[in-house]
């Protein structure tokens, strides 16, 4: 019986940015546990491991480095509820620092 404990539920909710009250934490904990219980069948299938990225029967597809002809004009104030000086403004995260090698 897979048991998803409340701490795991809270951790997953934090990752998914979903605010849950304690009742929801318990509810989801039991629902997820019962659903995952049915997933034992996944173990019974004999599967072939393979080297390299799994091929996806989809042909490769790249686009030319040209500006797309029918670019939509999206007025900047339509982009977000709070736009100032053309910038999208949101409440600040407490921790400074970006993700992509710059802050």
């Amino acid at each position: 019986m897979t048991r998803i404990d409340p701490e795991t539920v809270r951790h997953v909710a934090r990752l998914a940015r979903l605010r849950l009250d304690e009742a929801e934490v318990d509810q989801l904990g039991s629902e997820m546990s019962s659903i995952l219980d049915h997933f034992a069948a996944l173990e019974e299938v004999d599967v072939a491991r393979q080297e390299g990225p799994t091929p996806r029967s989809i042909d490769p597809f790249l686009r030319q480095d040209v500006e797309s002809a029918d670019q939509l004009t999206l007025p900047v104030e339509s982009l977000a509820p709070d736009v100032r000086a053309g910038l999208i403004v949101v409440p600040r995260l407490d921790a400074l620092g970006g993700k992509n090698g710059e802050s």
């Binding site: 982009l79 100032r84 053309g86 910038l87 403004v89 949101v90 409440p91 600040r92 400074l96």
Partner: peptide, 15 residues
Amino acid sequence: KSQHDRFDGSTAVDL
């Protein structure tokens, strides 16, 4: 690009 000091208490984003 995010600017953290452009408007106080906020982050301003240019996409």
